[in-house]
Amino acid sequence: MTARPHTRTLALLVTTAVGLATALSAATPAAATASHRSDHSRKHADNIWGGYITYGSTFTTISGTWNIPALDCTNNRGIASPWVGLDGWDSDTVEQIGVDLDCTTGRAQYNTWVEMYPQDSIYFAEPVQAGDSMTGTVTDEGGHWYTLTLSDTTQGWTKSFRKYLATATSVNAEAIIEPIGSGSVPTLAKFGPLQFTGVTVDGRPIGDYATHASTVTRRTTTLATTGTLKSDAFPVTWRHS
Rank of each mutant, 00 (worst) to 15 (best):
G85Q: 10
L86D: 06
D87R: 11
D87M: 14
G88I: 10
W89L: 14
D90N: 15
D92I: 12
V94E: 06
V94Q: 08
E95P: 11
Q96T: 15
Q96S: 15
I97R: 00
I97L: 11
V99E: 05
T104I: 00
T104A: 00
T105P: 01
G106W: 00
R107E: 02
R107K: 11
A108S: 15
Y110E: 03
N111R: 14
T112R: 06
W113H: 08
V114T: 13
V114E: 05
E115R: 02
M116V: 10
D120G: 03
D120E: 06
D120V: 03
Y123I: 05
Y123A: 06
Y123P: 00
F124G: 07
A125H: 12
E126I: 06
E126Y: 11
Q129T: 14
Q129N: 13
G131A: 09
D132I: 08
S133E: 12
T135G: 09
G136T: 09
T137R: 06
V138C: 05
V138M: 04
T139K: 13
D140R: 08
G142V: 12
H144T: 14
W145H: 15
W145T: 12
Y146L: 08
L148M: 13
L150F: 03
S151I: 12
D152H: 12
D152P: 06
D152L: 04
T153Y: 13
T153I: 13
Q155C: 14
G156I: 10
T158I: 09
S160E: 12
F161Q: 04
K163S: 09
A166P: 13
T169K: 15
T169Y: 09
V171Q: 07
N172S: 11
E174W: 05
E174L: 04
A175W: 03
I177L: 08
I177C: 04
P179I: 03
P179V: 02
G181T: 01
G181Y: 00
G181S: 07
S182I: 04
G183Y: 01
V185Y: 01
P186K: 01
G192T: 05
P193G: 05
L194P: 05
G198T: 02
G198D: 10
V199F: 06
T200V: 14
V201S: 07
D202E: 10
G203W: 04
P205G: 10
I206K: 07
I206E: 02
I206R: 01
Y209P: 08
A210K: 15
H212W: 14
T215R: 08
V216R: 12
T217C: 06
R218H: 02
R219W: 11
R219T: 13
T221Q: 15
T225W: 11
T226G: 02
T226P: 04
L229K: 10
L229A: 09
D232H: 07
D232I: 10
